[in-house]
Design a protein around this nucleic acid. Structure first.
Lengths: 349, 349
DNA sequence: CTGAAAGCGCTAACAA
DNA sequence: TTGTTAGCGCTTTCAG
């Protein structure tokens, strides 16, 4: 008989009822103690905590969410994870989350390329209380459903047309304007521009900033110097190769829409036998960590990536708490970081 | 009366019962259809699917896991996300996961530094069916509990002493040996070594490989050339600065335990006015994407990071399916990738 | 081949 | 201050 209850092999999970029994209270009381409900007698609380301790009880999350309607989980949708642009933003997200009780589900959009509906389902399944979308993604594929399901979401570094989206971005236009301006002031007149993926607004804004600065500097915009990229290093490399071969006279400066593209450009330039910045100035956008570690150190427009992540989390949690909050858009200031990849040239060159 | 049911504002979620009612069957039947149970009459199945479609029904994940005991979620625990070492592994994880029905929860160990217990709870809460741990982490803090809870886990790029751990790693010893050997063959005799964080076995293995190669090359091991690092770029930078100042005669080559440290070393060397590889050869470990984009391109020991991620997922899913599987350890081959950061020197130099 | 019914572990009124 | 009682939405016997 006695060996019945001593069987330790029962790997059954400890439930709230076990704790309740052990503490001689009802499960409701245990629940109250665990959710830090105020009106529980000190002694009862102690008894419960002791039992929790002793049994090694850990609440079951799905049961809790099912009953309460809150999962305390947010989703993070990213195109991929192989560059530190995303990584840095995520760092910020993470920091902010440390102050909260939320955890994060990771969704990568390339896991099911073209299967946006898969994700839409995943978001709608109730697991996730809100969503952080980091650019560059094709938001249109998700956003309608998200709105229909009334799931709060924040777009990071990419605006969309709908008024109802929350977005955290940087002052892309201004950043690009200022950077281009800087290049002009260094005497450059043949400034090529490698765009980002033009499916997102931020890429368009950067392009517009570039154009505006040229116009203000009385430099004609030459379409053959504006090439469509996609934020990938490899593409930056290929574009630059082509640019250097086919445009005559060649540009004296290249402004890339993100640092990764700029790295690609540097590489192509070097392969073409051009010294940076002596033969060619290169300027990036983002200021990811490697920007200060490549050689020469990359002059770039800093986006406050970490801060963007933090702000996004803050906004999202607010929206989750109070669904009636009006949508917000915040644009954080960019800053030109002058390092070693651009040099002054004689205008007559 | 009629306006009662036309009220479209009821933002209540569509449940399985709604579908059942709409299709004129029981919820059990809907469940069967959705879980692709074989023995459902064709016509019934169609009716159900039609209703699912029409109502836009998406199953609630927590309810499903609660009832079934399976969440179809695995956890990914990483130290951080700001470098592409983790990113590349994650890429592999992701690819493999694309074939499965599992999603991933992301836990970063620096979110709650020192609060390992927080994570242990998070893992034990039933949300996660298994765990992928990417180095460098302090596994001891988790593993006991994981084992006690019988949660399957895989250590990536870090072994631990316990026989019972599943691990996916690379041939660290051999990789380091071969690389050091290469440096010797280039004529180097003063080869400094920047270790990784010695809390993980892989870092120790690399150190041992380095030492063994020196010994085999009849080169004495000089302790002042072996400096303890931690896999961070910044640390690699600081160590190299010190190394170049304080050791006389200075090393002619530096072998860093990971690429990030190697980048730091390159930077310090350059600041000290040394040309790479002319004045100093530098060799890394990992072959993260940037390795081929820094200047000069980094010679390094390639770890099959993506593959490691894929294999880890495969192993984990197997373990989840069948908890009784014996623990496995697989070591994937490394490969020396010779690029431009090392050069032959005259032994008399 | 399908339905009824009993939970999974927890929360949240409602009583007491 | 605490217990009782319904569920949350789904899966899974067990009958039929």
């Amino acid at each position: 008989m006695s060996n019945r209850k001593s069987s330790p092999k029962k790997k059954q999970r400890v439930t709230i009822n076990d704790v309740a029994r052990a503490a001689g209270v009802s499960n409701a009381t245990v629940s109250r103690v665990l959710s830090e409900y105020e009106f529980v007698k000190e002694s009862t609380r102690n008894r419960v905590m002791e039992a929790v301790e002793r049994l090694g009880y850990v609440p079951n999350l799905q049961a809790r969410s099912l009953a309460s309607g809150h999962s305390q989980i947010i989703g993070l949708l990213v195109p991929n994870l192989d560059n530190s642009y995303i990584g840095t933003i995520t760092q910020g997200i993470d920091q902010e989350l440390a102050h909260s009780n939320y955890d994060v589900m990771l969704y990568t959009s390339h896991r099911h390329p073209g299967k946006e509906s898969y994700y839409v389902d995943a978001f709608a399944n109730g697991l996730t209380e809100g969503l952080l979308l980091i650019a560059p993604l094709v938001p249109a594929a998700y956003l309608d459903t998200l709105r229909a399901q009334n799931i709060p979401y924040i777009l990071i570094d990419q605006a969309d047309a709908a008024e109802s989206s929350n977005v955290v971005e940087a002052t892309n236009w201004q950043g690009a304007y200022e950077a281009t301006r800087y290049l002009c002031e260094l005497g450059h007149t043949r400034i090529a521009f490698i765009t980002g993926w033009l499916g997102v607004q931020s890429a368009i804004d950067r392009l517009e900033g570039y154009k505006a600065a040229l116009t203000d500097g009385a430099i004609p915009i030459r379409e053959e110097l504006v090439i469509q990229g996609d934020y990938q290093q490899q593409t930056g490399y290929e574009i630059t190769q082509k640019l250097l071969q086919s445009v005559d006279p060649p540009p004296t400066a290249i402004f890339a829409s993100n640092d990764l593209s700029a790295f690609g450009a540097m590489d192509a330039a070097r392969e073409a036998g051009l010294a940076i910045p002596d033969d060619l100035s290169i300027l990036g956008f983002d200021d990811i960590p490697q920007a200060s570690f490549v050689y020469p150190k990359l002059t770039t427009v800093r986006q406050p990536l970490e801060l963007m992540g933090q702000v996004a989390v803050k906004m999202l949690l607010e929206q989750i708490e109070d669904r009636s909050l009006p949508p917000q858009r915040v644009a954080l200031a960019t800053q030109l970081v002058i390092r070693d990849s651009c040099r002054r040239i004689d205008p007559t060159e």
